[in-house]
Nucleic acid binder design. Sequence first.
DNA 1: CACACAGATTGACAAACATCGATACGTCGT
DNA 2: ACGACGTATCGATGTTTGTCAATCTGTGTG
Lengths: 117, 117
Amino acid sequence: MTITDAPIDAPAADGCCAPEADAGMPRDEAERLAKVGKALGDPTRVRLLSLIAAGARGEACVCDLTAPVGLSQGTVSHHMRVLAEAGLVEREQRGKWAYYSVVRGTLEQTAAVLRGL
Amino acid sequence: MTITDAPIDAPAADGCCAPEADAGMPRDEAERLAKVGKALGDPTRVRLLSLIAAGARGEACVCDLTAPVGLSQGTVSHHMRVLAEAGLVEREQRGKWAYYSVVRGTLEQTAAVLRGL
DNA sequence: CACACAGATTGACAAACATCGATACGTCGT
DNA sequence: ACGACGTATCGATGTTTGTCAATCTGTGTG
């Protein structure tokens, strides 16, 4: 996946192709945004996120979520893991249940990055 | 690809699992956000987007972009297509070159949706 | 017209992903 | 200790995705 280390020099054509060497956001920030993006890149996960956010308690356990999205428990658990790894939700084990809540800071920060592009 | 039409009823357990039926954002909005998310879900595309945004002219043609990301012309073209279909960039053919520019409105709107979650 | 060049498209292929069913892990009540 | 229940993880499978090399399309220039 993505070599991106070739030092390939710009051909410096005649009419187009300004140098503009290595502008853009730093490599690791791009990586972070991409991770969040990938997590948001599945309608089911967006759905899960919004279900948790919209819930009265601001949190939800997996058993709350399987029915609304119509997927198996295992699959929902997998999606929650992806969301958690992207920093979009946090997991808190309370008794038998695992409560997931939205990490507003990540949303805010992601929104800020998008605006700052 | 995602069945998501099973009418599966909530089991209504005893200690957890509040109804909270079909809350969350409307289905099509989730789909739209997911499309943008998917487009942002690849580091290379984030890189491309930021390169265009950071460029002095606020736009770039493909030949400007292949070198910085170190990928083949065909691949970059493909990525630009994905970005365009997500509404993140706009294409304008000018002479031999195709100039891509960032659609700030989409960024703003996406940021707003994230904040509103 | 013919050639060169920018970009899009196609075909192929490996890697990543979403999903399920089954199974393993924790935690509670009995 | 046992069984029930919520959740995590694993193995398998079909689909999607990122990438390249090659080809096709369109635009300008000789």
